[in-house]
Amino acid sequence: MNGQPSLVLRIGLPLGFGIAVLVLWELFVVTFDIPRAILPAPSEIWAAIQRSTEILWVDWVQTVLKGALTGLVIGAVAGFAAALAIDRVDFLRRGLLPVANFVAALPIVGVAPIMVMWFGFDWQSKAAVVVVMVFFPILVNTLAGLAATDRMQRDLMRTYSANHTQTLGKLRLPAAMPFIFNGLKISATLALIGAIVAEYFGSPTKGMGFRISTEVGRLGIDMVWAEIAVSALTGTVLYGFVVLIERWVTFWHPSQRRSR
């Protein structure tokens, strides 16, 4: 019952801090007359956002909706499916897991140009980069989760003479959920980074990564910051969304339990 700060405090405090930082930032830039190319003031970034709403929207759809989210969904489903297969077949555990390990170690700056060559300049290649990036965290976390049951829980299923599917569905998958959501939280952040960075290696004339790299060249730093602001906001919302689903699914876990 205690320790649950009120809604005002939970939202108001971080919001207050954020505003304070923006105000100090503005004052700092104005007082010391910092050149715009080095650091634009928040008011200038806001002006850029208002001026270029349409461009920002097009970039957002291209990078976030098409690149990052498509890749995240495909990669997460693939990682999850691979984990189930590896868990079931020991042959795959020995064969596929080391390969997945190897793929996870590939640097994104190496993967991205190859994907552009394979899947073209448009969002498909960005989604492919994201798939490669999120596949492994989901795979590893799901595998860890499937192994997270204790002996007594498994013995119980054995006394019922439960088959593999029943044990999986009624014990091991529910027990794995907190782990799977850890993987999803990591992946949500990775997906956005991957989709943006991948655009540096070739893209149509839209997309957040494309915009950042070209505006830097044109010294349109306020636009760069506008894209950064949009991507930061998107990342936060995406992460928060995953956390919300996690709370709903793993309400029973000690880390999520609240007074009921």
Partner: peptide
């Protein structure tokens, strides 16, 4: 399924 088994701890599934 000839027997019911009760373990040292309750071992109820928390979900």
């Amino acid at each position: 399924r000839a027997y019911g088994y009760v373990f040292q701890a309750a071992g109820l599934y928390p979900w």
